[in-house]
C-alpha cells in the first residue's frame, strides 16, 4: 500500500508553510530589534532585556501565572468531587450529567463571559440578593475575583471530563480487593482511586492552565481596563502599539515558561507513580 504514502506530501508542504513558518517568524522577530529589515537580520537580545528590566512587565507575568495557578487549583478542588460523583452514579444518570457538563462548553466562550458581566455588576443579581439579605453590596466586577471566577467557569468542564475519563478507566476490582483486605473507604480512596486518577488530573491541568495563562478576553471583560495579564500585553503590542518584536519576545518568554511548567508537572506525576510502585513492592 505504499502508493498511499504520497497522500501525505501535500499536507507536509502546507504544514511547513502554515505552521512552521509562523513559528520561525516569532523567533526571528523576538531576537531582532525594531525597524530591522528582513534582509539585514541582526541578532539582538534588546527585547528580552527590556522585558526583564521593567518591573511592570515582570509583575504582569507573575500575576498571570499566579491567576492561572489559582484557577487550576480551584478547578481541581471543585472538579474532582464532581467527576467522582458522576463516575459513581448510575448508568442512565451518567449520560445525563455528562450532557449537562458539556452543554455549556458548546456555547461560545465570549457569550458566556459576557453574561457574567451582567451578573456581577454592582446592581446585578448577586448584589441584589446580598442587599435583600440586609448586607452592603460588594464590588464584584473588575476585581481579581471576577477574573478567576470567569476562568474557572470557562475551564472547569475540561478538568471534570479528564478526571472522569481516568476514573472510569480504573479497574474496580482493586477497590474490592482493598476492602477485602480491610481498608476503609478513605484509605482505599487515598491509596487506589486518587493515584490512579492522577493522569486525568495532569491532562486536566494542561487543558486549564494553558488557556488560563494566555487568556486575554476574560481579564478584559471581567477585569476591566486596568486589569492587565500577559495576554493583554501581547495583544496591545500587536494591535495598538505595533511593536511586533517586543510582542514576539513576550510570547516567546510565555511559551518557554509554559513548557517548563508542563515539563515539571509531567515529572512530578512520573515521580509519584514510581514512588507508589516502590511502596507496593
Amino acid at each position: 500500500m505504499k502508493q498511499f504514502r504520497n497522500m501525505t506530501y501535500p499536507y507536509i508542504l502546507w504544514m511547513t508553510i502554515m505552521i512552521i513558518m509562523p513559528m520561525l517568524l516569532i523567533l526571528m522577530y523576538a531576537f531582532t530589534s525594531k525597524g530591522n529589515d528582513v534582509a539585514t537580520i541582526q541578532f539582538s537580545l534588546q527585547n528580552f532585556s527590556r522585558f526583564f528590566s521593567d518591573a511592570i512587565f515582570v509583575d504582569v507575568l507573575k500575576r498571570s501565572f499566579y491567576i492561572a495557578v489559582i484557577t487550576t487549583l480551584l478547578c481541581i478542588l471543585f472538579g474532582y468531587p464532581a467527576a467522582y460523583i458522576i463516575a459513581n452514579s448510575q448508568e442512565k444518570n451518567k449520560v445525563f450529567l455528562l450532557l449537562l457538563i458539556t452543554l455549556p462548553t458548546w456555547i461560545n466562550m465570549l457569550v458566556r463571559t459576557y453574561a457574567w458581566m451582567g451578573i456581577l455588576q454592582d446592581d446585578g443579581i448577586i448584589n441584589s440578593i446580598i442587599t435583600l439579605l440586609g448586607m452592603k453590596p460588594i464590588k464584584l466586577l473588575h476585581t481579581n475575583f471576577a477574573v478567576i471566577l470567569g476562568m474557572v467557569y470557562n475551564f472547569i468542564p475540561f478538568m471534570i471530563l479528564q478526571i472522569y475519563t481516568s476514573l472510569t478507566k480504573m479497574d474496580k476490582s482493586y477497590l474490592e480487593a482493598a476492602s477485602d483486605l480491610g481498608a476503609n473507604k478513605l484509605q482505599s480512596f487515598l491509596k487506589i482511586t486518587l493515584p490512579l486518577s492522577l493522569p486525568g488530573v495532569i491532562s486536566g491541568i494542561t487543558l486549564v492552565f494553558l488557556p488560563a495563562v494566555s487568556s486575554f478576553f476574560i481579564p478584559k471583560l471581567l477585569g476591566g481596563g486596568q486589569f492587565v495579564l500577559i495576554g493583554n500585553v501581547i495583544e496591545s503590542q500587536f494591535l495598538t502599539s505595533g511593536n511586533w518584536n517586543f510582542g514576539s519576545a513576550i510570547s516567546f518568554i510565555m511559551a518557554v515558561i509554559i513548557m517548563i511548567s508542563m515539563y515539571i508537572t509531567k515529572k512530578v506525576e512520573a515521580n509519584l507513580n514510581t514512588m507508589e510502585k516502590e511502596k507496593t513492592e
Binding site: M18, P22, M23, I26, I234, S251
Partner: peptide
C-alpha cells in the same frame, strides 16, 4: 497549534 497557547499561533499567523 494544539499545545501552543492560541495567542502564540495567532500572532505567528498575523506576522506570516
Amino acid at each position: 497549534p494544539i499545545m501552543n497557547p492560541e495567542i502564540v499561533t495567532a500572532i505567528g499567523l498575523l506576522m506570516f
